[in-house]
Amino acid sequence: MSEEHQPRREEDAKEFAEEQASLFKITFGPLIWAVHFVVCYGLVAVTCAKGWDIFATRLGLVLLSALALGGIGWVGWSAWRQWNPSRTGDPMNRGSRAEDRHHFLGHAAFLLSIISLIGVVFVSMPLILIGGCQ
């Protein structure tokens, strides 16, 4: 490796700053799933206990589910672009460079957003299929 290709200090810092951001990014999908889960179960339980209008709660939660799916979709899309397997030609990113880690975290975030998407769909199904508080 020649002298002029050595990354400068600030370039390194920038690269790692981005990596820190994407470390957070891998938690976004499961986080949206978790919040959606707690809000759905909590709100339905409180609605039934207090005798509020369950129809309004269901409608609100279906909208929240759509919002959660959109959010996870966005996280997944941005993670897919970070992983970018078609452009790098390397889906596994086994290397040890910062760039490989960057792509790998995108890969992880993408897979986590898929499972979060399935989780949100499963949690939402009772809202659509079960009516009322019984």
């Binding site: 399935i118 769909v121 499963f122 199904m125 009772p126 299929l129 079960i130 009516g131 009322g132 019984q134």
Partner: peptide
């Protein structure tokens, strides 16, 4: 699992 969940939820009520 999605098919089983949907079926199970549909007979639950």
């Amino acid at each position: 699992l999605t098919a089983l969940l949907a079926w199970g939820l549909s007979i639950l009520p």
